[in-house]
């Protein structure tokens, strides 16, 4: 490599002279930077691809398996819920996306660059919360409606179907998509607390998937408090079973989980050395 002429200008003549407007680096700057971070990583694109392909596949299998059964089999059948089965994939993959948004910074050392550039650590976490939350909200909503229509198209081949005009259907589809964003935020909170990617993903999977599977085997009355259980049986359901929480309580509970994880993360982020 050849020695290059130095073109570092003086502070005043350099390209970094202060611009009018903002008086100091804050949330607005962090939001732009975090967006660049998010879209400039291949892992983000891969995660989204896996989410979409996986969700389409699971919904196809779930609805296809519900075709051509006896009349009695369809008692209590919820075509909406059946078509939203693929969102379970999204709850995992987007949760991992949320974990990586923070733990990835620690794993690679990027966090030191991030905090040197933005020493007001709350702004960094807030920017991540806003972008991860809004990004996964858009993806979740789009995915929810796509899966609903995919599922109904498959079910039309030989099973009861639902339409958005029926009572509770639009609500279930729209809230389910939004619920994915809460999984991503829960992941972000856990990633901020745990900081190590592998450990944080393990804890996230434990809190979501494992909790609902394990607790279900013990007692449904405990399992209904698990995020994945709330998702499948309260939020994404039009026909509710006796044990599941109401939609409102389910969502409030999930918001509380996110608030706890993110709140603890914020406290630790401010307190710990980077």
């Amino acid at each position: 490599m050849t020695t290059l002429p130095l073109t570092t200008g003086r502070l005043t003549s350099g390209g970094a002279a202060a611009r009018p407007g903002a008086w100091r680096a804050g949330l607005r700057q962090s939001l732009r930077a975090e967006w660049t971070k998010l879209v400039s990583l291949r892992s983000t694109r891969w995660t989204l691809l896996i989410t979409v392909v996986g969700a389409l596949l699971v919904t196809f299998l779930s609805t296809h398996g519900a075709l051509h059964h006896s009349r009695g089999w369809y008692r209590g059948f919820d075509p909406t819920n059946q078509s939203l089965a693929g969102l379970a994939i999204g709850s995992l993959t987007l949760g991992v996306l949320g974990v990586l948004a923070m733990s990835g910074e620690y794993g690679t050392g990027t966090i030191r660059s991030s905090l040197a550039a933005m020493p007001r650590r709350g702004a960094l976490l807030t920017a991540k919360v806003v972008l991860v939350g809004l990004g996964t909200l858009v993806i979740g909503e789009a995915l929810g409606f796509i899966l609903f229509f995919e599922g109904q198209a498959v079910l039309a081949g030989g099973a009861p179907t639902a339409s958005l005009g029926q009572p509770g259907v639009l609500r279930a589809v729209a809230l389910s998509g939004a619920f994915l964003a809460l999984f991503a935020l829960l992941g972000l909170g856990i990633g901020t607390v745990i900081r190590h990617t592998a450990g944080a993903i393990a804890v996230f999977a434990g809190c979501t998937l494992l909790a609902s599977i394990l607790l279900s085997s013990i007692s449904e009355s405990i399992a209904r408090f698990a995020p994945e259980f709330i998702f499948a049986n309260s939020v994404a359901a039009v026909v509710h079973s006796g044990d599941s929480l109401s939609v409102t309580i389910g969502i409030v509970l999930m918001l509380a989980y996110c608030a706890i994880a993110l709140g603890l993360g914020a406290v630790l982020l401010n307190r710990r050395d980077a």
Binding site: R32, T110, A117, M118
Partner: peptide, 21 residues
């Protein structure tokens, strides 16, 4: 190693620049 290995050098500097306008 204060950068993400998956990000290009230009993108690393781009987000850093954005943090401080």
């Amino acid at each position: 190693k204060a950068f993400h290995p998956g990000r290009s050098a230009r993108n690393h500097l781009r987000w850093l620049a954005q943090t401080n306008d």
